[in-house]
Simulated scan of single mutants.
Amino acid sequence: MKYSLKIIIDLPLKDTIDKMDTLENLKKWQDGLISARVISGNFGEQGAKTELKYDFGKRKITMIETILETEMPHHLIAEYRAPGVLNIQKNTFESTEDGKTVWRSENMFKFEGLGMKTLGLLMPGIFKKQSLKYMRDFKSFAESEIA
């Protein structure tokens, strides 16, 4: 399953990336995130691995983020692995002429196991909806935080 999303953040590119590229800020905009810890490398750098633990009430998920490629502030490709799911996310960031930031996210999901394959087939919209929610939540956080 593949999909692309786009959002415009009312901040300059540098300010947007400064707020995004900080481990401590993740909990401020990722609803359900209860812990984030680097397990190898340096956060945000190519090859770094970060363990992310989420609590969504009845669902508790642990995933591993691996930075596959980074040329920040313009480009970041990350892999997210959780039981039964692989998500590869390509993010690009561009400045607009009026000082805003365009964030584009291309997502590709692969599902393993009958349960996850069925969920991906019957309810693909839930993955896109969650991705868009996090993008909107980041936008709200970034635009409301004092630099």
Rank of each mutant, 00 (worst) to 15 (best):
M1L: 12
K2V: 03
K2H: 09
Y3C: 10
Y3K: 04
Y3H: 14
S4W: 01
K6S: 14
I9K: 02
D10Q: 10
D10C: 07
L11C: 11
P12V: 06
L13T: 02
L13C: 08
K14V: 13
D15V: 13
I17C: 06
K19Y: 09
K19E: 11
M20C: 07
D21C: 10
E24L: 11
N25D: 06
N25K: 09
L26S: 02
K27Q: 11
K27F: 08
K27T: 10
K27Y: 02
W29A: 04
W29F: 14
D31M: 08
I34G: 07
I34Y: 11
I34L: 07
S35K: 13
A36N: 09
V38H: 04
S40H: 13
G41I: 07
N42Q: 14
F43L: 06
F43Q: 05
G44Y: 04
Q46I: 07
G47R: 04
G47W: 05
A48C: 15
K49P: 01
T50R: 00
E51S: 07
L52Y: 02
L52Q: 01
Y54F: 15
D55M: 02
D55S: 10
F56V: 07
F56G: 01
G57T: 04
K58I: 11
R59A: 12
I61C: 00
M63S: 11
M63T: 07
M63Y: 01
M63W: 00
I64G: 00
I64Q: 01
I64H: 00
I64P: 00
E65C: 00
T66D: 03
I67V: 15
L68Q: 06
E69M: 03
E69F: 04
E69V: 04
T70I: 05
T70H: 08
E71P: 01
E71A: 09
P73M: 08
P73W: 01
L76D: 02
L76Y: 03
I77F: 01
I77K: 14
R81G: 00
R81M: 03
P83L: 03
G84L: 00
G84V: 03
L86E: 03
N87I: 00
N87R: 01
N87C: 00
N87S: 03
I88W: 02
F93M: 06
T96Y: 06
E97D: 12
E97V: 13
E97L: 15
G99T: 10
T101N: 12
T101L: 12
V102R: 09
V102K: 08
R104D: 10
M108P: 01
F111N: 09
F111E: 09
F111A: 12
E112C: 05
L114N: 07
G115P: 03
M116N: 11
K117R: 15
K117G: 08
L119C: 02
L119F: 06
L122P: 05
L122S: 08
M123L: 15
M123D: 04
I126F: 09
F127C: 10
F127S: 13
F127Q: 07
K128A: 12
K129M: 08
K129S: 10
K129W: 02
Q130D: 14
Q130L: 13
L132H: 07
K133M: 11
K133N: 09
Y134H: 13
Y134V: 12
Y134M: 14
Y134K: 11
M135Y: 08
R136N: 15
R136Y: 12
K139D: 03
S140Y: 09
F141R: 12
F141M: 11
A142W: 13
A142G: 03
E145L: 14
E145P: 02
E145Q: 15
I146R: 15
A147G: 13
A147Q: 15
